[in-house]
């Protein structure tokens, strides 16, 4: 196992906590009945009129929580990936905190290293995202 600097790990866990916390706060605010009336938080959509790859993921998350799973999938399938991250992320953080290990940081390091060694793997990640983006634009 690669030994990561404890200073880097501490910084990683601080950012990961803030990141997940802001994600949950954003979701809770969206669940409280926020309506955007055409003007969204997305800078790309507001300026160009074209949705970004992640546009609709908040609506998708809200629909998942309401139990409208097909609507969520149609709105933006990325909502399911984000939902998994929002549930699994805090659990993983707590598990690392309790065990004193930095498995989350190591997992991200190994993930990045795999792509540095085999850049073609990027296609596996980026192509589905690209198709989803095209689908997102077509749904407008």
């Amino acid at each position: 196992m690669v030994v990561l600097r404890s200073k880097d790990s501490a910084r990683f866990y601080l950012y990961a906590t803030l990141f997940l916390l802001s994600g949950w706060l954003w979701l809770l605010w969206s669940l409280s009945g926020y309506q955007h009336d055409g003007f969204t938080v997305c800078f790309i959509k507001n300026t160009t009129g074209i949705p970004c790859p992640a546009c609709g993921s908040t609506t998708s998350l809200v629909q998942i929580i309401k139990g409208n799973w097909w609507i969520a999938l149609y709105t933006n399938p990325l909502g399911y990936i984000i939902a998994t991250g929002l549930v699994a992320g805090p659990l993983w953080l707590v598990a690392d905190l309790l065990t004193g290990k930095s498995t989350m940081h190591h997992a991200l390091y190994r993930f990045d290293r795999a792509f540095r060694r085999r850049p073609l793997l990027l296609l596996v990640v980026l192509l589905p995202l690209l198709f989803n983006w095209i689908w997102n634009i077509m749904k407008m």
Partner: peptide
């Protein structure tokens, strides 16, 4: 990418 640049903060 998935989070719109971490809600623009990141």
């Amino acid at each position: 990418l998935l989070t719109c640049g971490g809600l623009y903060i990141w």
